[in-house]
Simulated assay, not measured.
Amino acid sequence: MAATAAGVGRLEEEALRRKERLKALREKTGRKDKEDAEPKTKQLRARSTDSENRRELRLRNYVPADEDLKRRRVPQAKPVAVEEKVREQLEAAKPEPVIEEVDLANLAPRKPDWDLKRDVAKKLEKLEKRTQRAIAELIRERLKGQEDSLASAVDATNEQEACDSD
């Protein structure tokens, strides 16, 4: 118990020293007035209660029987015409159709390699043209080589037709 009493005594001494230091600091800064010594929150509360006491009584929903109180009654507020504002907001909120026709190709999911096909399409066009030219050249060469046999085939066909007509 003696240890606890000594500990409490020491704490009290430290508290007194702190109070003395704070008092000296206040005097040093020039705050001697009691109102200045109070925290600002307390001062604000005191001011707000003073202003609340000075407020005038206004009656909005209560209809008093006393004539003095009837003078303090606030006139009924007239509602503001909002039909036009609401109409404008409703018109502004209507979604405008961006796409009138729906393309089914856009709705269908794309294949995983669609981007590769798109990138290669230009190169394939060039190759397709070259392929067509090469095929045309091969056909011309064959026709030149077969021109003799073709002429004989045509003559043979003409002779056959002539015999058939006789």
Rank of each mutant, 00 (worst) to 15 (best):
T4A: 11
A5E: 10
A6T: 01
A6G: 01
V8Y: 09
R10H: 13
R10L: 14
E13W: 04
E14Q: 15
A15V: 07
R17M: 06
R17G: 04
R18S: 00
R21S: 07
K23A: 05
L25F: 07
R26V: 00
K32D: 07
K34M: 06
E35Y: 10
E35A: 13
A37S: 01
P39V: 10
Q43Y: 05
L44T: 06
R45N: 15
R45L: 15
R47L: 14
S48L: 11
S48I: 15
S51T: 15
E52T: 12
N53R: 08
N53T: 13
N53M: 10
R54I: 06
R54T: 08
R55G: 10
E56S: 08
R58C: 06
L59D: 00
P64E: 01
K70V: 01
R71G: 08
R71K: 14
V74K: 05
Q76W: 05
K78C: 08
V80H: 01
A81P: 02
A81N: 04
R87T: 13
L90F: 09
L90A: 13
E91C: 09
E91R: 08
A92C: 03
A93P: 00
A93D: 04
P95H: 01
V98A: 04
V98D: 03
I99S: 15
E101H: 10
V102W: 00
V102E: 03
D103T: 03
A105W: 04
A108R: 00
A108Y: 02
R110E: 11
R110N: 12
K111C: 08
K111P: 04
K111N: 14
P112M: 04
D115R: 13
D115F: 09
K117T: 08
A121E: 03
K122S: 13
K122V: 12
E125S: 02
K126E: 06
E128K: 09
E128V: 03
Q132D: 13
L138G: 15
L138Y: 12
I139D: 09
R142L: 06
G145N: 11
Q146E: 11
Q146Y: 06
L150E: 00
D155C: 03
D155P: 01
T157F: 11
E159K: 06
C163L: 12
D164K: 15
D164S: 10
S165H: 11
D166S: 13
D166K: 11
D166Y: 12
D166Q: 13
